[in-house]
Write a protein that binds this DNA or RNA. Structure first.
Length: 108
DNA sequence: GGATTGACGTGTC
DNA sequence: AGACACGCCAATC
């Protein structure tokens, strides 16, 4: 099986350290997708379909907004998990986003 | 099989 | 600094 774009996305997401978050665009860039950041979002939609549920709660948009929180089982689960990892969520938004940001381009 | 939407990002006004 | 517009490509209708 060739590593599809989605599998690579899953791999990167799984590599996100605990207490850290990243953005769709950063993942897309690290995979060479560049502007195809939306593909990362589509890949995340498969997060609930894959066997090991991906820590999709660690993936937010470029401003640290929990855009996909409504796709979680209880929509509040995303913020709850992030807060459980020491990340502050306010107004469905990651506080100190740049501090908790995990750059796959650099850390991978 | 064409048209629309979408867990987004970046550039421009 | 906030709001609007465009692009990217896949999945769904």
């Amino acid at each position: 099986m060739e590593q599809t774009f989605y599998e690579q996305v899953f791999e990167v997401v799984k590599l996100i350290p605990k207490g850290r978050v990243t953005s769709y665009g950063a993942i897309a860039k690290s995979l060479g997708a560049g502007g195809s950041s939306r593909m990362v979002g589509h890949a995340m939609r498969y997060a609930g379909s894959v066997h090991p549920p991906l820590p999709a709660h660690r993936v937010v948009n470029s401003v640290g907004l929990l855009t996909g929180k409504f796709h979680f089982n209880p929509p509040t689960l995303m913020a709850a998990l992030l807060e459980n990892e020491g990340i502050i969520i306010k107004n469905d938004k990651v506080q100190n986003f740049t501090t908790h940001f995990w750059n796959p381009l650099t850390e991978i």
